[in-house]
Nucleic acid binder design. Structure first.
Length: 793
DNA sequence: CGATCCCGCCAACGA
DNA sequence: TCGTTGGCGGGATCG
């Protein structure tokens, strides 16, 4: 309808003409001229933006703003050119030469990428909570004249980035890019945890070595051996709030496209030259979940899917197609053109501050820290499992229910209907608290303090849907806390191994590194490196504190270990389990695991915990864990206070997080305050957790648990966009000769290279800019032998 | 001819 | 059983 309104009759008639139909039997709908019109039609482009208030122009603006200049330009060109021009041309033709069928929309016109552009044009990048950001698949499909199936492709990818979330059947909520930075951070974290960097290296190396090995088997095997450990759980990383809804709505287990999309993104975020070839991506993704090898068809299918995903990501301006020239020839690849994502490691903040911050979710990156631990744990567990079970066969069969239940807890929020949530958003309240599992996480970075990670099991109570086993991680200031839903199988594993799980050292390691970073260490070996060394990580063993050079790190790591142990001992876990079990029946499981960042959730108003509270929390945690470390928390209330810092706000992240940005998220209002000044967004998580815990009875009313002990503020580079990619070292040529590759970058690379202790392989360096912003240049991997060249297409 | 990837069959789910 | 989702891969296009 909308189209009609906008369209001119003539066009319509044209469109409707039999010719077209003849051309394509399929879709009448398709035939309609969606594309063209907007551009073509004199009045206004209708179809593209029919309902949306936003004009195409605005859309462009958004794109522009969002994207780097280059991208932006490029995008514009594309849009204008490909879309409008082409379309127009066709239309014109049609008009003129009606009879000749001509153009059925050429394949390009129907491309997913173009469709995605159209789709995106309908919604603002940063929607205000006020407007209705609901997406009705049917309507969209109709308006865009495509089959619904195609919309799913788009939406699924957007979902992976938390740009949309499913509300109900046929219904999605548009979140835009508000959560993008967090999502990316989370993904990067997870990617690091998964050792994607190493995996990539391995694959490349392998390829290089035996170039052919076509039989993927070897490669695969290799990969497995190496990476397999990590093959990680297929988890989906979710943001706070929305996930639950979505979960309730779709229980489809697979979510493979979504998960795949996230993994794909992870690869970019983790790899140094942020260029990922489809081949490598496919291998890694395949290797992960399937023990089995990948045969050719499987590989092929994977690639196909990656193209689908890549098209959407390209439309979002997150990646662009490039070609990597290798000895063999050029291979299709994609380069990350999205914003740079900081790693937690980058930031440095005084422990105290962090602690305080943690309490309030402001921005930080620490969030990730925890995640990793979880992830790793899972991974390790899996590995163990594998070891134990020689046969990797079927994915999981275990009834997830029991085990999973242990962990999972739905949040009340989840229960709340979306609409209600919506309303609630304004208020502070949210609780969703999934369960938190105690994890050993990391202590606050820098300082002595540190708290452990705290994950506490939250409660669970009444919640209904909990899925599998969501684990809530304490989040970091930045607000990124997430809950991980484990796959049943995984969950199972976890349960089984919970102890080891707890122990997981990795996180600690990360933390440690971070600290060092803080200190300004320019070069640091990334965790990954360490991992790589360990390539096969034995989960259980993970690592011991020993390795860490810095005292702090050691301390932290040790602490971690201790804590983890303590945790093991602690009954919390048990409790959780029991709770979970009880809950089980009522709960819904998610087949796939999800990582849910709690961050955004609004937190309760009370958010601001008084220092006292914080202190209390800390202590509480300790107690809870009963870890020996208990007293560890160094920060005093006063300190905390002092710590609270405005600094947080500064980061771009904050911006992203700003309340407004949060938008749809269930979060309450931004109003929350923080204890100190931190005003900006925070995570509700802490408050939520406390609330939940209290409810559950895990903690007494008076006690509060900090969501995240650590906080970090991340000094994010102020440039949100992709800025420097140092990595591009090799010869990457982008499709469009945009800018001269920066010699700078190359320089940087070089530096890293040299500095890297590890040698040619992976290295990551972290540098702190004098200006205060820290930027990581990630490690670059060098594979000497191979050369990568990226060329534009 | 290889790189892309559209198209839609059909299974998995939920209502 | 039916509608919604979305895995999947044949085979058409593109370059």
């Amino acid at each position: 309808l909308s189209n009609e309104q906008y369209c001119f009759l003539p066009y319509r008639s044209v469109l409707k003409t039999p010719l077209k139909q003849a051309a394509t039997s399929h879709s009448v709908l398709t035939e309609i001229q969606p594309d063209c019109q907007p551009l073509t039609t004199p009045p206004k482009p209708k179809e593209v933006i029919p309902a949306d208030p936003w004009t195409p122009t605005s859309n462009l603006k958004i794109l522009i703003s969002a994207a780097s200049p280059e991208i932006r330009n490029r995008e514009q060109r594309k849009l204008s050119n490909s879309t409008s021009e082409v379309l127009q041309a066709k239309y014109c033709e049609h008009l003129s030469g009606d009879e000749y069928e001509k153009s059925q929309p050429s394949r390009k016109e129907k491309s997913l990428g173009l469709l995605c552009h159209k789709f995106l044009a309908r919604y603002p990048d940063y929607p205000s909570t006020a407007e209705n950001n609901y997406i009705c698949l049917d309507e969209v499909a109709e308006e865009l004249n495509v089959e619904r199936r195609r919309i799913y492709d788009i939406v699924n990818v957007l979902e992976s980035l938390h740009m949309v979330s499913r509300l109900a059947k046929n219904r999605y909520v548009w979140h835009g890019r508000h959560n993008l930075s967090k999502t990316l951070q989370a993904l990067k974290k997870v990617g690091e945890d998964n050792k994607y960097t190493q995996q990539i290296q391995m694959i490349k190396k392998r390829e290089y070595e035996h170039e052919f090995d076509f039989d993927g088997e070897r490669n695969e095997e290799m990969a497995r051996s190496l990476g397999s450990n990590e093959h990680s759980e297929m988890s989906f990383v979710e943001l706070p709030g929305m996930e639950f809804r979505a979960a309730s709505v779709n229980s489809r287990k697979d979510k493979s496209l979504r998960v795949m999309s996230q993994k794909f993104v992870m690869l970019f975020l983790v790899s140094t030259p942020q260029v990922v070839s489809l081949e490598v991506a496919a291998k890694i993704l395949i290797g992960e979940d399937q023990l089995e090898d990948l045969d050719k068809s499987k590989f092929k299918t994977k690639i196909r899917r990656l193209y689908d995903i890549a098209n959407v990501l390209s439309s979002l301006g997150l990646i662009k197609k490039v070609h990597v020239a290798e000895e063999r020839g050029r291979k299709p690849a994609f380069k990350w053109t999205g914003p740079e994502v900081l790693t937690d490691s980058q930031e440095t903040i005084p422990s105290k501050e962090q602690c305080s911050k943690n309490l309030f979710p402001s921005r930080g990156k620490q969030n990730f820290t925890r995640h990793p631990s979880l992830i790793k744990l899972v991974r390790s567990i899996e590995n163990d499992r594998r070891k134990i079970q020689s046969a990797p066969t079927s994915p999981v069969k275990i009834s997830a229910s029991t085990d999973q239940n242990l962990l999972a807890f739905p949040s009340k929020m989840a229960q709340v209907p979306p609409m209600a949530k919506h309303q609630l958003e304004g208020q502070s309240n949210n609780l969703f608290s999934p369960e938190v599992v105690p994890k050993p996480d990391l202590p606050c970075t820098a300082a002595p303090s540190q708290q452990p990670a705290l994950t506490q099991p939250l409660g669970a109570g009444p919640l209904s849907h909990s899925p599998v086993s969501p684990v809530m991680l304490p989040q970091t200031p930045s607000g990124v806390s997430y809950a991980i839903y484990l796959h049943p199988s995984q969950a199972h594993t976890v349960t089984t191994y919970s102890p080891s799980f707890m122990l997981q050292p990795l996180p600690c390691a990360n933390v440690t590194e971070i600290k060092s970073t803080n200190s300004k260490v320019l070069n640091r070996i990334t965790t990954a490196e360490g991992d790589s060394q360990i390539a096969t990580d034995v989960p259980t063993k993970a690592f011991t504190a020993k390795e860490r050079p810095t005292t702090k790190s050691e301390t932290s790591s040790q602490q971690c270990l201790k804590r983890s142990q303590a945790l093991q001992d602690s009954n919390l876990i048990k409790r959780c389990r029991s709770d979970g079990e009880s809950l089980d029946s009522s709960l819904t499981f998610f087949p796939s695991g999800y990582l849910i960042p709690l961050t955004q959730c609004t937190h309760g108003n009370k958010a601001g915990f008084s220092n006292k509270e914080k202190a209390g929390i800390c202590s509480l945690q300790h107690t809870t864990y009963s870890s020996p470390i208990a007293g560890v928390i160094p920060v005093t209330a006063s300190e905390l206070k002092a710590v609270n810092i405005p600094a947080f706000h500064i980061t771009p992240l904050n911006i992203m997080l700003s309340p407004t940005s949060i938008g749809a998220a269930p979060v309450l209002s931004n109003t929350c305050l923080n204890s100190g000044n931190t005003s900006s967004t925070q995570n509700p998580s802490s408050s939520v957790l406390n609330f939940a815990l209290q409810h559950v009875g895990l903690i007494s009313a008076g006690v509060q648990v900090p969501a995240n002990p650590v906080l970090q503020h991340v000094p994010v580079s102020s440039q949100p966009e992709n800025v420097s990619h140092s990595s591009e070292n090799r010869n990457l040529q982008e499709e469009k000769p945009s800018v001269p590759k920066e010699s700078q970058e190359s320089q940087i690379v070089t530096e890293n290279f040299f500095r890297t202790p590890g040698g040619p392989n992976t290295v990551s360096s972290l540098s702190a800019n004098s200006d205060g912003t820290n930027r990581t240049s990630q490690g670059t991997l060098y594979i000497p032998q191979r050369k990568l060249e990226v060329s534009e297409d």
